[in-house]
């Protein structure tokens, strides 16, 4: 077991434990903070997989944007003055059984498949390759995503304002 494996298990444990607390804790604000640790763990996994730029984007967009948005949603839609930021759960036992079965099936499929692995050499910085791909083969997707994001944000702002 070398240092790479130890770091992988560390980040995987952080990710899975905090994700478990996100879906089980009753306090919404606490769940949002555990979600922060989940995103950090996933960013670490990205770095281990050689995706440095995606890891940075994950930190900036998820932690800096989406999580703040979720916390704002929590603050606006709960009466913060009363201490009632708890939330209930329903159907926990059937959901646990169903999800457990699903995980078992997918896990068995993954473990029993002979994966054909080629460990490609990822360049030290993926940024220039990704940038070239974005303005060459994927320029249409890139522009469409830009328009989609613009329309979505304008729509969200006008829906939330009225």
């Amino acid at each position: 077991m070398n240092i790479y494996d130890i770091i992988f298990y560390l980040f995987a444990a952080v990710t899975l434990l905090s994700a478990f607390f996100v879906v089980t804790t009753r306090n919404i604000v606490r769940a949002a903070f555990f979600l922060l640790f989940t995103f950090f763990g996933v960013a670490g996994i990205y770095v281990l997989l050689g995706a440095d730029f995606v890891a940075i984007v994950q930190l900036i967009v998820y932690v800096g944007g989406i999580l703040i948005l979720l916390i704002f949603g929590v603050m606006i839609t709960n009466k913060i003055t009363q201490v009632d930021i708890k939330t209930g759960t329903i159907h926990t036992l059937p959901a646990a059984i169903g999800v457990g079965l699903f995980t078992g099936v997918i896990g068995a499929v993954i473990l029993n498949t002979e994966w054909f692995e080629i460990k490609t050499d990822i360049p030290v910085s993926t940024l220039s390759t990704l940038g070239r791909m974005l303005i060459n083969e994927y320029v249409l997707v890139f522009e469409l995503l830009g328009i989609l994001l613009l329309v979505a944000l304008i729509g969200a702002a006008s829906m939330a304002r009225k």
């Binding site: 989406i66 948005l69 949603g73 994001l149 979505a152 969200a156 702002a157 829906m159």
Partner: peptide, 9 residues
């Protein structure tokens, strides 16, 4: 990101 903004609205 787009989905989170719309869903929050």
């Amino acid at each position: 990101a787009a989905e989170a903004a719309i869903a929050l609205a």
